[in-house]
């Protein structure tokens, strides 16, 4: 499958990576090269083969319903590039 510029733009948008027009074309070419190579997978017959999920050596463990964490607002907010009072802040979102 070959990647066109519109698709490249769409996935950059989905991934929220702001690319300039010239970067888009360079990216498209690079990804296309990799995709061409990856397409060799098409020749593998996977009829009846289940997809691998996890490493299948264990099943999911569960924890007890106890409050063991949280109450560390200052430590968390200290890492943030922008805060106001007890909140993280972002440019105003209009719904």
């Amino acid at each position: 499958m070959s990647l066109d510029l519109a698709t490249t733009r769409r996935i950059a948008k989905l991934a929220r990576i702001g690319l300039e027009e010239n970067e888009l074309e360079a990216t498209r070419q690079k990804l296309n090269g990799i995709l061409g190579w990856i397409d060799q997978l098409a020749e593998v017959d996977v009829t009846g083969v289940p997809p691998m999920v996890g490493t299948e050596t264990e099943t999911l463990r569960q924890r007890e319903d106890k409050v063991t964490d949280g109450n560390c607002r200052n430590a968390l907010l200290a890492c943030a590039p922008e805060t106001s009072g007890p909140f993280y802040t972002v440019p105003k979102v209009v719904e």
């Binding site: 997978l41 593998v44 996977v46 083969v49 289940p50 997809p51 691998m52 999920v53 299948e56």
Partner: peptide, 10 residues
């Protein structure tokens, strides 16, 4: 497809 091939590799 890749996850299925991964099963085969394993």
């Amino acid at each position: 497809k890749a996850q299925k091939v991964r099963t085969l590799i394993k």
